[in-house]
Design a binder for these strands. Structure first.
Lengths: 217, 217
DNA sequence: GTCTATAATCAGATAGAC
DNA sequence: GTCTATCTGATTATAGAC
């Protein structure tokens, strides 16, 4: 093998193997949950020896924790900030679309997060409360301002947000059930559009928000 | 101890202990998932010796399976049949209300089911496909008939049903997150009404269904 | 029906040679 | 950086006395 093809920078192997391991772990934790996931399968999926995983991560829990933080970070960067001058149809439509897209493109991430919350967030609990407290308060305030300004019906902002979360994440977390019901084994581009348009129609109209022209979608 | 106070009928002890064990197991499986649940804690919660659990159930998996079947049965009996002559507002409103009620009253059951689906339904898979196939087809047909009759907007029936499932079950499955966001440690009667009325408002209006008078709710 | 061993297995984590 | 061998602890399930 030519020297030129070898990783040249220090820590290159480390970086590459961490990525392999994280990808393998993401699948394993999504498929089995924290308690069902075993290091042996993670190693196998990553193509490394089991003991070697411990050269990169101190423990199974540390590996899980790293994944959870990555997921939350990825989530945050996917969903931009909003403010009260923005148009509700615009903002909520874009948010629904981004969430559906995230679910269909990152089902494993969504499942890991769902499993963690389902068990009462034993690992990520505090971290989340700090992080989401502000985020949520900001959005609730904007929605309340929209209501005050007569831009939409008087619906409880928290429950509206929960509705968007639950309906969009459902397509990742419960994809087994959804796919069984639809009689398909994976989502298509058409499914994405159908899901997005149905959710957007019902939620926006249900909140008394006038939709934008089709061009804006 | 007086003889009269002892269980008189054969199998009485068995019946009582099975109930104790199932209740304990329901909590344990809801809190920890199938892989995280351990027989030791189930026994402790039930107030029995660990080995004694095996006198009543052959294995952890059998116990889990019994619970899942109970949950599905309970679910079915909670939600009555519908047909195309019925009024959409009436039927969907009642269904949403019943689902929210079920979630708030039986969070453990909902969580066990959610955990099973999240993992790809490894245990209950086939059983479900048989059971839900017909159920779902029936509802989809009715909703399509309502659309044909001009009683509601042309929204995809499958996605409408998923929306009702996801939004209502969210309050059980992700109660940790919801309660943290709302700043409370349990749901009140007021929460129940707020949730039900918000979901009903958005979903019915979003589908272009005229609500009934308040008296009917 | 209950409960104290105990067998058998499995998986996390580490030691230490290469 | 990699990998074999090993230690340790936990847990399922059973045997068999009471």
């Amino acid at each position: 093998m030519a020297i030129a093809s070898l990783p040249s920078k220090t820590g290159q192997i480390r970086k590459e193997n961490e990525i392999l391991i994280l990808a393998a772990a993401e699948q394993e934790f999504a498929d089995r949950g924290f308690d069902g996931a075993v290091m042996g399968r993670i190693a196998k999926r990553a193509g490394l020896a089991r003991a070697n995983i411990y050269y990169y991560f101190n423990s199974r829990e540390q590996l899980y924790w790293r994944l959870l933080k990555n997921i939350v970070a990825k989530w945050n960067e996917s969903f931009p900030d909003i403010n009260r001058e923005d148009d509700p149809a615009n903002i909520l439509g874009a948010y629904i679309k981004a969430k559906v897209k995230f679910s269909l493109q990152n089902p494993a991430a969504s499942k890991i997060f769902a499993g963690e919350i389902l068990r009462g967030a034993p690992i990520i609990g505090e971290y989340l409360e700090d992080l989401y407290g502000n985020w949520l308060r900001g959005r609730v305030d904007v929605i309340e301002a929209w209501i005050q300004a007569g831009k939409m019906d008087r619906v409880d902002p928290h429950h509206l947000i929960f509705m968007i979360w639950s309906t969009t994440q459902h397509y990742a977390d419960f994809d087994f059930q959804v796919k069984a019901a639809l009689g398909k084994d994976k989502y298509t581009k058409e499914d994405f559009h159908k899901i997005t348009s149905t959710l957007t129609h019902i939620i926006l109209k249900g909140c008394g928000i006038k939709p934008l022209e089709d061009a804006a979608l």
